[in-house]
């Protein structure tokens, strides 16, 4: 499996570490941010292949960040996967409406999650063949 660069945005340090380490075990290069503002700073320097974005963030929420990234020509192509904690009625649709390309319900299943992320990355490559590393 090929290595990708993934930005994980989550305000909960345990969750952030869990997701980041899990994907690092798979060999991916991981960037992290604890909130949307930090994610914006990271994105000024590096563009990842995939963003795993927690929706409930302090300050700017994940949906707002997703809308901004999809409105910006520089970041529009980056695949965004919402990590929706609540899976309440309407939450998933809200994520898609904000421009997210997919969603994964939290809590993540550490045994299924790497496969789900790999599927997302395959879709990214199918969509942007030139970007494949």
């Amino acid at each position: 499996m090929s290595v990708s660069r993934i930005l994980v945005v989550d305000d909960n340090p345990t969750n952030l570490k869990l997701v980041s380490d899990l994907l690092a075990f798979e060999g991916h290069e991981i960037l992290h941010a604890m909130d949307a503002e930090e994610a914006q700073v990271v994105l000024t320097q590096t563009l990842p292949d995939l963003i795993l974005l927690d929706i409930a963030l302090p300050g700017m929420d994940g949906l707002t960040l997703a809308r901004q990234l999809k409105a910006d020509g520089r970041t529009r192509h980056i695949h965004i996967v919402a990590l929706t904690a609540f899976a309440m009625k309407g939450d998933k649709q809200k994520a898609l409406d904000a421009g997210c390309d997919g969603y994964i319900s939290k809590p993540i299943d550490t045994r299924a999650f790497p496969g789900e992320v790999a599927d997302m990355l395959t879709r990214v490559r199918d969509r942007n063949p030139g970007d494949a590393p």
Partner: peptide, 12 residues
């Protein structure tokens, strides 16, 4: 949320 940490890291 904390329970996911417990389960997730134990799985690792």
């Amino acid at each position: 949320t904390p329970l996911n940490g417990i389960i997730g890291f134990a799985e690792f």
